[in-house]
Amino acid sequence: MTTRFIEIMVGLFVVLGILALFMLAMKVSNLSGLTRSDSYEISAYFENVGGLKVRSPVTVAGVRVGQVTGIVYNSDRYEAQVSMRIGVMHDYFPIDTTASIYTAGLLGEQYVALEPGAEDDVLKTGDTIEFTQSALVLEEIIGKIVVKLTSG
């Protein structure tokens, strides 16, 4: 067992550990999430955010373009304000873009879907999306159905 062999093996061991850490950081967790320099932040007001959470994905046409960074209640508008961080390569959203909260599958997680509008001006940092569609809350729908059934 030469010193050289031991040193090579230890070197490989450390490289393997770093590769594994790299995998945990980039592929397993959301370090690949956006940093301040390569993204811009916009917000939208919803009547009801349902089960939307911080770090939920923001998609357009089903493609992930960013993530939710904050959800707070705005007492002036009586609505929830959702902040989103979008990658700078996706800087083509017209100001009349619509934001909707959808659910992936029946019980899956909720996400924000953006649907681009037709205006020439595009959204920039700090802008607010005016057209929104709230989350469908399952209990509300069931309630409505029950009311309809019992009244009819």
């Binding site: 945990l24 950081a25 967790s29 959301n30 690949s32 770090r55 939920s56 992930r64 993530q67």
Partner: peptide
């Protein structure tokens, strides 16, 4: 499999 993992595993809180 991977995207849901990425969306729900946090580098600081979990890793």
């Amino acid at each position: 499999f991977w995207s849901q993992m990425q969306a729900n595993v946090d580098l600081v809180d979990d890793v």
